[in-house]
Design a binder for these strands. Structure first.
Lengths: 249, 249
DNA sequence: CTTGTCGGATTGTTCCACAATCCCCTAGCC
DNA sequence: GGCTAGGGGATTGTGGAACAATCCGACAAG
């Protein structure tokens, strides 16, 4: 008889109202990941607070939420800035991605069926978006696909970790001009990988995944460096903000 | 010539003054990880603010920092509570640990030498502490050892991820009565693992690591459940979900 | 025993004030 | 001329108070 209540409890999170800080963070997150707030931009407490009609305290709380997600960096007595993702960051992200997604692949045989279904679903969404040339949506679906790969492991913390990485990757995507050039080559390989997973070929899947991620990393890093040089050649020397210290702990 | 400056830059974080919120968070973190603040206790803004002589604003910011580290949980309109780690959490933590430490082992051949040295150093510290029966220090050194294992990968994000996990694990350690029973059996296996790594036997090391972590997880989960049942049998069957109202002195 | 309602207590949010800090700009020095 | 040292302005860090929103327990009514 408790089954009904358990099912409801699973949706419990949905009805918890969002605090003002969370709503503010959501707005800022959208602006950042969609490139409307350029990396390096300083987010003034006063200006933003006025624009969004929230107090500085609330705004500062929103900043901390975004700092969690690594979308902004906070420098003491200087303020918060939209994160500037450097090629080294992207390389690092892919190192962690490889570890997490590999964990997913390796857990394949003990995975819940719906985890595999999520994989195929994300893949379908990506291809539907490709068909109509909506490359931004393709990028989103691609991220969801890889989140699903890591999700095979069925670990809440792995899921959270991947979600963070994907949020960071959006920053990289926003810094690359052509979304199509970025995603098109990898759609087919997503297909390949899914096939291997659905037929249970763990070892082959792991090999494909490794080479996939290495290739993707190289593509993005190259796109970023090219883009960076052309940008700095055009002027706009947006003083590369230092890659932060994280002196928190 | 930049070598000197790079070395200095590495220590840059050390001289950045800590904000009041960071100092408050540090105090609370120590109390929590050392078990002086029992899991489930509610951290009242007013009471704590008065005790530490900081304003609610600053205290709330410290709470956010601790929530980042998963040492406390924040419930809207209810306040923050010292995190209650459940057996399922521990199991989940070990799933992620396995992924991260495996990534370290696999990167062995392309690792910087000092990463391996850190491994041996942590091991030595653990054994020195064991010799004098200081099992709390043994636990700390053990955490550092495993952080070093994952650190072989040389990824900043993997390091941060592990640091978070280790902070969470401290919560589990604090919930287990006998630190000795917890750590003693695994010191020798740390030795074994280090030997395999130092001689470059990646595959064997990975096998040993996997079995090691599975065993450790089982030990901790069992210790936690046993402890929980004896505790609830001793009175106050707080449903393990909802922490008791107060209890903060 | 369940349901509605009330009141106290705590958090969420805003607003204001002031100190601490950073950054740029200018003046002065060698 | 280039470099160093202050000065002034702007912004963040922190404290404090007030009010609204919300939760929780207790009590009353059906």
């Amino acid at each position: 008889m408790t089954g009904v209540f358990d099912a409801l409890a699973a949706d419990r999170g949905r009805l918890e109202r969002a605090s003002a800080a969370q709503r503010v963070a959501e707005v800022l997150r959208d602006h950042i990941t969609e490139g409307r707030l350029a990396p390096g931009t300083r987010l003034s407490e006063e200006a933003l607070g006025e624009a969004l009609t929230v107090s500085r305290n609330t705004l500062r709380e929103a900043f901390r939420l975004l700092a969690d997600e690594r979308l902004v960096v906070h420098e003491l007595n200087r303020g918060v800035f939209v994160r500037i993702l450097e090629p080294a960051d992207v390389a690092d992200i892919y190192t962690l991605r490889l570890a997490l997604e590999t964990a997913g692949v390796r857990a394949l045989h003990s995975a819940a069926p719906e985890r595999l279904a999520a994989l195929r679903a994300a893949l379908d969404r990506a291809e539907a978006a490709e068909a109509i040339g909506d490359w931004v949506t393709v990028g989103t679906a691609d991220l969801h696909f890889h989140q699903a790969v890591a999700g095979i492991a069925g670990s809440r913390r792995i899921d959270e970790c991947m979600a963070r990485l994907m949020a960071e990757l959006r920053l990289a995507f926003a810094a690359v001009p052509s979304a199509r050039a970025l995603h098109a080559p990898f759609l087919r390989r997503n297909q390949t990988l899914t096939g291997l997973l659905e037929s249970g070929e763990i070892d082959d899947a792991e090999v494909e995944l490794t080479s996939y991620l290495n290739d993707a990393r190289a593509v993005i890093v190259r796109a970023m460096t090219e883009n960076a040089t052309t940008e700095s050649a055009m002027g706009e020397g947006a003083t590369a903000q230092r890659p932060m210290t994280d002196g928190a702990r």
